[in-house]
Each structure stands twice: as structure tokens, then as C-alpha cells.
Computed example of a mutant assay.
Amino acid sequence: MRTSRILLVEDEASLALLVKEGLEGEGYLVHHGRTGEEAIQLFKRHTPDLIILDVMMPKLNGFDAAQTIRQVDKTTPIIFLSAKIQAKDVVQGFKVGANDYIRKPFSMEELLMRVKVVLDGVQLVSNKQSELTSFPIGNSELRPNRLEVLVNNKEQVKLTARETELLRLLCINKEVLLTKESLLLSVWGSDSFINSRSLDVFISRLRKKLKSDEAIAIINVRGQGYKIVVNR
């Protein structure tokens, strides 16, 4: 199996060294940058499997760097590391394309587990070719192995690995209410507060990507969860 490549961008030298050594100890190949500008340059040079981004960096911050990367790559997972822990900051992180958001200070055990969950999620989706390769829904078709949905059977819309897995769960449970807890545990591996907020953001992103197919609706049952329905 190919060694997973991780791009780590952190300007605090001691923390960067700790994280880099921890990741390398688990067998990952790590490229390290210190600024948002370096994040973009190293991303283009090394095509990593995962990006770990600090948020508060001089000149170009992590949010802006992620937004620039997302203009050319919609699928490579991004994990933010940040001392900015207000709900608005977490939501902003997911809006610019994050797959996860870890609050500083954190333990290496937590980071390594979240890295594994994110990378396993990418592998899980890429392995779907051995299972069902498409899910018709409304006038559209989810294609998990391609990380995309064919909206109205004509417009190819790219998804992240986590968006794909979330939509897949909703599709195979069409018209069935899935609780927030079950979705969080299945897709994020944890039902923490931050992950709960991120679920809401991901649902919003899926609605936006599917909005031109008027036959599909993702319904929020307040205080319970979500379900996808097809209007015939």
C-alpha cells in the first residue's frame, strides 16, 4: 500500500516538530510549510493525500489558503488546527472546505485518530467500486467511486469524500429519518459538539450542490436529524 502523503502547515516551530514527528512515527510522509503561501506552493508540488492547516498565520491565513486550494481541488481532505474556537470560526472553517477542525491545545492521540478517520473515509469512498457504483436519486445520480453527483443527469458536481459518504447514507436510507448521532458516528466517528456543527454545514453544502434538481430535498427534522426525500 502506498504511503499517505500529508502536507502540514504550522508556523509555530515546536508544535510543527511535535506533529511532524508524531505523523512520521505512524508511517506517514510529511511535507512541512510555515505560511499560507507555502501551503499553496507545497500543495501544487507534492499533491498530498491530506492537508493539515494552522489557521492563524502571517500574511495569508489558513482559511484563505484553503479557499485558494479549493478553487482547483475539491476533494483533498483538509484538517484545520486552531486556537480560534468560537462557533463562528468553526463554521467558517467548514464553509471554506474543511473536513475537520481541531481546537488547540490538542493531544497527538486525538490528531492521529482524526487523521486516520479522514484518510480511511477517502479510502472507503474510493473502494466503493467493488460495491454499488451509483445511487439514483431524484433526477440525479450519486457516483461514490468518482466523488461526484451527476445533477439532473447532466451536470457533474464534485464532492469531498465526507460529502460523498454523507450523501450515500442519505440515499440508501431514502425517506428515512437518520438521527444526527448516527450520521456523526458513521461519517465523523464522533458525535462531539464541533462535529455536530460541521454536520449542519455539510448538509448546507449538499443542498447547495443539489439545488438545481428540484426533485430532491434534504429535510431537517428539528432536534432529531435529517432525511432525503424525492418529490415526484
Rank of each mutant, 00 (worst) to 15 (best):
T47C: 01
L184W: 12
L81V: 00
F80T: 07
S196G: 15
T160V: 00
K227V: 03
L17M: 13
K158H: 02
R103H: 06
V176M: 15
K208R: 07
S182F: 08
L178C: 08
L132W: 01
Q86H: 11
L124F: 15
S140K: 05
L199G: 06
L42P: 05
V118E: 06
L53I: 04
L132I: 10
E24Y: 10
L159M: 04
T164G: 03
L7H: 10
L15G: 09
R114A: 04
K154C: 05
R168C: 04
I219S: 02
Q41S: 14
K59Y: 11
M57G: 00
Y28G: 09
M113N: 07
R103V: 15
V9I: 14
P136S: 13
Y226V: 06
M113D: 10
R103N: 10
V125K: 00
I218C: 05
H32A: 09
V229C: 06
S126K: 12
S204Y: 02
L169Y: 11
V157H: 09
L185H: 14
N220L: 01
V151S: 08
I194R: 03
Q41I: 15
P48I: 14
K158A: 05
K180C: 03
Q92V: 02
R222C: 07
I78Y: 06
K209T: 14
L8P: 04
A16R: 09
E21T: 03
V30Q: 12
V72E: 15
